[in-house]
């Protein structure tokens, strides 16, 4: 029963700090095995959403479940890992002691911890630093050990909040490889990021968040949808033309000064039909130019108007 439940379920999660609405209403389902990107500009409510799901912040309203258990029950985090955005840990602990402690908090027996700790230190490239205190670690090393900590219990669901913010290109690749490895093992990954490229490379599905709301959810990779934009330049635009094109694209942008129409299509299979239909109804067609929409284009088209902070 628990196995069959989705990894994450959120129903109208809302968080208000004083008069500021951090998360308006978060409703989403992340199935097991997905690498789910949570993408949005700074201040969009991404971290607050993760905090509510992990029990760090109490929702003002709504409810949620992790691996089938309500987020108010600490046991829901038994098979969950988390790398916080502020990866600050007890500086007086040695790297190996730190991982051992977090294993203990998951209730792992001694022999399991004795196996997992060196494994994870190797995975994040910190074997040499096993006996060094965290206080002597660089920012990148702390993020690596934080990632190892998130995986100590061989979790079924991992939350990574901006996991590469402190890392150099080599470290970023390591995180990508780890996420790929997790995906192959069937682990669900919830990746919180404002880095479009990072999400584009690693995720299977992505939610765009702005001003505390999920604006759009789309699949990436092989089943990419909503990703083709077609510009049609015609002799004359009339109402019938716009209405007729509506059968292929829910949204038709009209630019009368250049006589151009822009369609948003889920795939390119309908392109010949569109061309045929336009010509057969007697409209002069000067050009039909499809272009794949990058995640960045989609991001700006979905949340562009809400962005007041930087996006990188």
């Amino acid at each position: 029963m628990v196995q069959a439940s989705p990894a994450i379920e959120a129903f109208g999660l809302r968080k208000v700090y004083g008069s500021k609405v951090a998360v308006d209403s978060l409703t989403l389902t992340v199935e097991r095995g997905e690498v789910f990107g949570f993408l949005g500009p700074n201040g969009a409510g991404k971290t607050t959403s993760v905090k509510m799901l992990l029990g760090l912040a109490q929702p003002t309203a709504g409810e949620g479940k992790l691996l089938g258990l309500p987020i108010t029950d600490p046991r829901c985090r038994q098979r969950v890992g988390f790398l916080p955005e502020h990866f600050r840990f007890h500086e007086w602990l040695r790297a190996d002691e730190f991982l051992d402690l977090h294993g203990k908090l998951h209730g792992l027996p001694k022999e399991v911890r004795a196996r997992r700790v060196p494994e994870l230190l190797e995975l994040v490239g910190l074997t040499e630093a096993a006996e060094r205190r965290l206080g002597t670690f660089s920012k990148g090393m702390l993020q690596r050990i934080g990632l190892a900590q998130a995986l100590i219990n061989e979790p079924e669901l991992v939350f990574l909040d901006e996991p590469t913010s402190g890392l150099d290109p080599l470290g970023r690749r390591m995180v990508r490889d780890i996420i790929r490895h997790l995906r192959e093992r069937g682990t669900t990954v919830f990746l919180n990021s404002h880095l479009l490229s990072e999400v584009e490379i690693t995720c299977t599905r992505v939610a765009f968040v702005a001003s505390g709301r999920v604006r759009h959810i789309t699949s990436l990779g092989e089943h990419q949808d909503g990703f083709i934009q077609v510009d049609l330049r015609v002799g004359k635009i009339d109402e019938g033309l716009v209405a007729g094109l509506g059968q292929w694209s829910a949204q038709v942008d009209v630019n009368t000064s250049t006589n151009t129409l822009t369609l948003h299509l889920s795939d390119e299979s309908s392109l010949p039909k569109i061309a045929r239909w336009v010509v057969e109804r007697g409209t002069d067609l000067y050009s039909l130019s499809p272009r794949a929409m990058s995640l960045e284009d989609l991001f700006f088209s979905v949340v562009g108007s809400d962005i007041s902070c930087e996006t990188s």
């Binding site: 916080p84 908090l105 209730g107």
Partner: peptide, 14 residues
Amino acid sequence: TSHTIQALATKPVR
């Protein structure tokens, strides 16, 4: 304040 509590409080402990 130092955020060290976050990795601890998200473990399956009360």
